[in-house]
Amino acid sequence: MGLLLRTIFCAIPLIKDCLFCRSAIIEKHYCKVEKQIACVGDLGEPFSVGNLAKDDLTETGIPCVIYGELFTTYGETISQIESHTYKTEGIILSKKGDLLFPSSTTVDAMSLIAPSVINMDGVILGGDMFGIHISPNFNAQYLSYYFNHIAKRQLAKFAKGSTIIHLHYADIEKAKLLLPSLEEQNRMAKCLVTLDDKIKKERTFFDLLNSQKAYLLCHMFI
Rank of each mutant, 00 (worst) to 15 (best):
L4W: 00
R6W: 00
R6I: 09
R6P: 07
F9N: 10
F9K: 12
C10E: 08
P13L: 00
L14C: 04
L14I: 05
K16W: 06
K16G: 12
C18G: 07
L19Q: 15
C21L: 15
S23E: 13
A24T: 14
I25P: 03
I26A: 08
I26L: 05
E27A: 14
E34S: 15
I37V: 13
A38N: 13
G41H: 06
D42V: 06
E45Y: 10
V49A: 07
V49K: 00
G50F: 10
N51D: 08
A53M: 14
K54H: 11
D56S: 01
T58R: 05
T60Y: 03
T60W: 04
G61W: 02
F71W: 10
T72G: 12
T73S: 14
Y74D: 02
E76Q: 05
T77Q: 06
I78K: 08
Q80D: 11
H84V: 02
H84I: 00
T85D: 05
K87G: 03
E89Y: 10
E89A: 11
I92R: 12
L100I: 07
L100W: 01
F101L: 04
P102S: 09
S103P: 02
S103V: 07
S103M: 07
S104W: 03
T106I: 01
V107N: 15
M110G: 14
M110C: 15
V123A: 06
I124C: 14
L125H: 01
G127V: 08
M129S: 05
F130K: 07
H133Q: 11
P136W: 05
P136Q: 12
N137G: 15
Q141E: 08
Y142M: 00
Y142W: 09
Y146G: 03
F147M: 01
F147L: 02
H149K: 12
I150G: 09
K152D: 13
L155G: 02
K157R: 08
A159G: 04
A159S: 13
H168W: 13
Y169G: 09
Y169I: 11
Y169E: 03
A170I: 07
A170C: 10
K174H: 11
K174P: 03
A175T: 00
K176W: 10
L178K: 13
L179G: 02
L182E: 03
E184Y: 05
E184G: 11
E184D: 15
E184L: 13
Q185C: 06
Q185S: 06
M188H: 09
C191I: 10
L192W: 03
V193R: 10
T194Y: 11
T194P: 05
L195F: 04
D196V: 02
R203L: 00
R203A: 02
T204H: 04
T204V: 06
F205I: 10
F205V: 05
F206K: 09
D207S: 05
L208D: 13
N210K: 13
N210H: 12
N210A: 12
Q212D: 13
K213H: 05
A214W: 03
A214F: 06
C218K: 12
